[in-house]
Write a protein that binds this DNA or RNA. Sequence first.
DNA 1: GTCTATACGTCGATAGAC
DNA 2: GTCTATCGACGTATAGAC
Lengths: 192, 192
Amino acid sequence: MARTSGSSSQKTGPLVRAAALRLFAQHGFAAVSMRQIAAEVGVQAGALYRYTPDKQGLLFELMKVHMEELLSTWAEVDAGPEPLSRLDSFVRFHILHHLDRADAVFISYMELRNLTAENFAQIEAMRAQYEQVLEDILVACGGEGLGDPKLTTLAVLAMLTGVNTWYREGGRLDREAVVQTYVAMVRRVVGL
Amino acid sequence: MARTSGSSSQKTGPLVRAAALRLFAQHGFAAVSMRQIAAEVGVQAGALYRYTPDKQGLLFELMKVHMEELLSTWAEVDAGPEPLSRLDSFVRFHILHHLDRADAVFISYMELRNLTAENFAQIEAMRAQYEQVLEDILVACGGEGLGDPKLTTLAVLAMLTGVNTWYREGGRLDREAVVQTYVAMVRRVVGL
DNA sequence: GTCTATACGTCGATAGAC
DNA sequence: GTCTATCGACGTATAGAC
């Protein structure tokens, strides 16, 4: 029996998350009210609580889904054993994946302090896991200039994620040009 | 005639700004109330309006002072004409200056979206000015690997500012070790 | 599954006493 | 220069009708 149109139960949930994602990214978690999110979706504020236990739960789910997707997508993309091509591939993946999810990336960096301690610990663990991915690649590459693997990892990630703060579609450089420039810069940072 | 103790007019203003700086950095601009700031200072909320026109003005002044100090302090530190030593000196300056002002740095990156359009434009202009400082140095260095000066500038600044997100006093590396590692990494990024 | 109505607290900012 | 008192608006979250 096909449910034709009546119930929006399978639509409203995703709409709530999409609206929250956009509004949190634009104005900040604390500055956005449940009423605003509801208005964006086209329902009354009370209806939101069918889809989230509370505002905090909404923020946490957005960040959790983002981090899970980051880790699982890399696992799919990750090609193979050759270290240097893995490094290039990681740089490309990180930049493009982050550019495609600017709102979620922004929230995941800016709103960490608005998570409860328990929720923060979960997100933090996934972030550390992602850092470890790059550190392992860098160690496998083992460039001569690679002094401290931890520091190099953090420096490279900061460099790559920084692209999100200035890149605009239709600007002077397209994505491919940015990726290639960063691939070259990262190689130099690690001394290869 | 020495005013001995009575009036606190010369003390409260700075205390208000110090409290706001700390609280905004910890909880975010939107999440902090004027009542919280007043409680931290030890006055009632109404008294704050002797020292700022409104909450927005308080945020703006913190960011404005921070950017002005960043630019003027570099102008003092900037040594001379030799490009490569200027680059090293900029890296050292940026890292240490930022580590010494973690709260102001954090606010200046996170709360840009809470500025009015007019205030944002002023801060943005000073940020662009600071970026130009590094770009000029990089161009003067003119390393062979230096592909796009704008991109390299942004990548290096992201790398350097990223230190603030993980550095903790008393950790595995002291400031000097961090500075030296980053000086070496930045030289490699620009191909020198 | 969404609505209306509401409990109850806090917000930024101002007025006027002292 | 700081206080107390207050305005009107808005915050999250819940209860119960439909």
